[in-house]
Amino acid sequence: PNLNQEELKKAISWEAEQYVPIPINEVRLDWQILGDSTTAGKVEVLLVAAPINLVNYYLNVLKGVGLVPVSVETEITAVARALVQRVEGAPVTMVISIGASTTDLSIVKGSRISFTRSIGTGGLALARGVAQELGFETDQAIEYMKTYGLDPTSLEGKVMQAIKPVFDIIVNEIKRSLAYYSNRHPESAVKRVVVTGGTAKLPGLVVYLAEALGLEVQIGDPWEGISMPSNIAKKLEEDATSYAVAVGLALKQL
């Protein structure tokens, strides 16, 4: 508190070294002041860090096809904008984006992201669990996972039992994140969970998460409130969870 911009920049860069797992001189940092902390005399800061080589890679791809990049942001930031931040009156919401390699979390209160975290387990780890348990090749395991998922009534629950040990790693980390946030923000408990990403459509996933977390869980719809021709809408709705990042980026300047 009471620091000028230059002092604040130095203080945040120093603090960031405790949380960023790679050298600070190898990342691009950005931050946003969220407000006063529950600890007297301190403020809460939302910190974003991305490897410089990764940022430069994407910038070069865009420039290579003749596009002019105006900003770069993390996937979970765009997803939160698409699924929660533009919804007026939305309750405090945890967004869970289950990708191929990672599961990204954010907690959104009103129009502000109050918490983010990335878990190093995603859909491919679930598929490997199925492949190992049932003796499948990875491609076949992915198809079985998409077809039977976490439904205990399908295929005698064999696929669910193969997925469960790995998926429970994700669930336990989600619980830890919810507990951490609740401890720091007891006045604004998370009321619901919105799930997105390619793995979000696994049969039984919503029910499993709802029972494990004790919260309302729903699949995120990035097309909610967006008008389009009916023939296009039907096609896009089939893979809605795959468009959350793109929709969130498109909404950034609106």
Rank of each mutant, 00 (worst) to 15 (best):
Q161K: 15
N183W: 06
P222H: 08
T116V: 13
L47D: 09
E143S: 11
T138K: 07
E143N: 11
T121W: 01
N172V: 07
S154C: 07
G129I: 07
P51W: 06
I174Y: 02
S118C: 06
G198Q: 10
A127T: 15
D168S: 13
P69V: 09
P152C: 10
Y57V: 05
E187V: 00
S242W: 04
I163R: 05
A50E: 07
V87I: 15
V166N: 01
I142G: 02
E44Q: 13
L205R: 04
Y181L: 04
A78R: 00
A90P: 06
T39G: 00
D239R: 07
V195Y: 08
L236V: 03
D139M: 04
D151A: 14
I33T: 13
D151K: 08
S101L: 14
V190M: 06
S101I: 12
I96Y: 01
P165E: 03
A131P: 11
K191Q: 14
M160H: 04
A141R: 00
L251Y: 06
K175S: 09
Q140V: 13
T103D: 02
S177T: 09
I76M: 08
L178K: 03
Y19F: 13
V194A: 10
K9P: 02
S227Q: 14
L83K: 02
L213K: 04
L54C: 04
I98E: 08
K10V: 13
T77G: 11
S71F: 14
Y19G: 00
K146F: 06
A189S: 15
A16E: 03
I24M: 15
A189V: 12
S106I: 01
